[in-house]
Structure formats: C-alpha cells, structure tokens
Amino acid sequence: MSATAKSANIGQDAIVQKGWLKTHQWLLLRRVTQLSILGLFLLGPIAGVWLIKGNLSASLLFDTIPMADPFLVLQTLLSGHQPEMAAIIGALIIFAFYFVVGGRVFCSWVCPVNIVTDSAGWLRRRLGIRKSTQLSRSLRYWILAMCFATPLVTGYVVWELVNPVSMLHRGLLFGMGMGWTLILAVFLFDLFISRRGWCGHICPMGAFYSLVGKFSPIKVSASDRAQCNDCMDCYAVCPEPQVIRPALKGEASGVGPVIIASDCTNCGRCIDICAKDVFHYSTRFANKAEK
C-alpha cells in the first residue's frame, strides 16, 4: 500500500513547484503530436481530405512527397526486391529527418504503440506492480538482427507478419480486425510481465531508430544537474532510465551533462517531472563546450 502511495506521489513536487500544466507540457505536446499525425492520416478515409495517404510504412504527402519507413524498406531490399524510387526517396527523407531530430523521436512522438505502452507503464506505477521480468537491453538488437536475417533466408519480409507498430497504425486506418489482440498482448506484457518490456527491450523498430539517431544533434541535457535533489522521479517516469545516470551523476567522473545514449527517446518526461528544472532540450555539442 505504501508503494502505491509512493508511486502516486511521483511528480507531486514538480506540480507544487511548477503547476500541473508545466509538469505535463512535453507529455501533452507529444500526445497532441501523436494524435495529430494519426488524425492527418485519418482525414482521408473519414472526411475525404487527402493531405496524406498511406500509413507509417509508406505514405504520400500532398500527392507529391513520398515517405517510407527506412526500417521496412531495408527489409524489402534484403528480401531481394529492388524497390521503386518512391520508396527509396521516401526512406531517405524519413532517415534524414530522424537522423537530425533524434532517431527515437519516432518512438515517443509518432509511434501509436507508445500511447499503449505509456498507459501500461502509468497503470503499472498506479497499481504498484513492482515485479518485472528483467530482459536484456540488448535483446532488441538481436531481434533487429533477426528482422534483417530472415528476409535473406525466406525472400520475404518476416517481421511485418507480427509487427504491432505498423499493425496498430494500419489497423486504425484500414480496419483492425483481430489485430487488437496483439496490441492488448503488448499492453498486458508491459503491465504485468516486464516494465517497459516492449518499447524498451523488444521492439526492433526502436532499436533501428536508436541506431538512426546515434549521432543526432538534438539531445536532452541535465544542464542544471547541480540542482538535483535525488528525488528519483526522472528515473521513475523515464522509459529508458539507464540513459539518465551517466549524464545526471557524471560530474564527478568528468562526464558531460548531455544524455548521449541513443536509447533516449527525447520524450521530455524528465524535463516535465523535475521540480528543480535540471533537464532541458539541448544539443550534443553543448556537451563538448562544457568540457
């Protein structure tokens, strides 16, 4: 019971200090972005306003600009298919975008499954479920390797048979069918089996975009880390808590304040939740400047 009460207290300091809105501003902005992107896609099928066609796997903006998921296009290449230019250009556009803004910005600002797993994470804290199967953080890279290896062997794209990310987005646009069972499975997995299990340990799309954003300039920085009062709230809300520590506690060992790890999704929850305003959006170059 005390655990529940303690979990419910996460962010309480920040709300008192900064107000509810400022404690949730990036979260709200992310939700608005996620839903707006989904809404833009839905405008076509629902209202007949075709600003954008297709889905997150491949789309066409204003009937001219192609976009395509580089992760998926790479899999089709490995299956032995030479895609048309639209898919290649589209994949390069998306690759370039996430290369700049941060690879896993896809995960936290665009991916529809993020809302599902964030909800599971929130409920897990609320219900005080502490038991969690520990999965290796490198598991997703093994699965990523499998996603690239299987098309080489079979000649077709294997991961798309079960990829809940594309399935959810496609389902919302074209009809879900029984696809919701898979989404429910991801939700329950995150809720009862493994904390942040899907997005943080398994999803190969996240792993791929993590690699895309390996050198991206836009980063979160613990620039006011001297203010940190060790309340641990940032660790509690962070979907990839292992990325915080080196930056937040690295002063003594001469590590810069910028969260360099590409697993960071640039979601900004740490910025929201910190009562001391330790975190800010910044660039990776800010890290060098201070050294």
């Binding site: 889905n55 066409l60 998926l72 296009v73 089709t76 032995g80 098309p151 794209v157 798309e160 009809g175």
Partner: peptide, 27 residues
C-alpha cells in the same frame, strides 16, 4: 513470394482504388 518481399503494406493502392475493391488483410 516476391510480392511478400516487396509489399510494405502501406495501403496506398487501397486508398487509390476508386471502387473500394481492394482491402488490406487483417490479422
């Protein structure tokens, strides 16, 4: 087999079909 390697399941063909003939298969 080639189709399953090439198709990215984006549904652009479905949305451009004027007669609602095409559908995307569900789970």
């Amino acid at each position: 087999n080639d189709f399953l390697g090439a198709c990215v399941r984006c549904g652009l063909c479905v949305e451009d079909c004027p007669y609602d003939t095409l559908k995307l298969a569900r789970l």
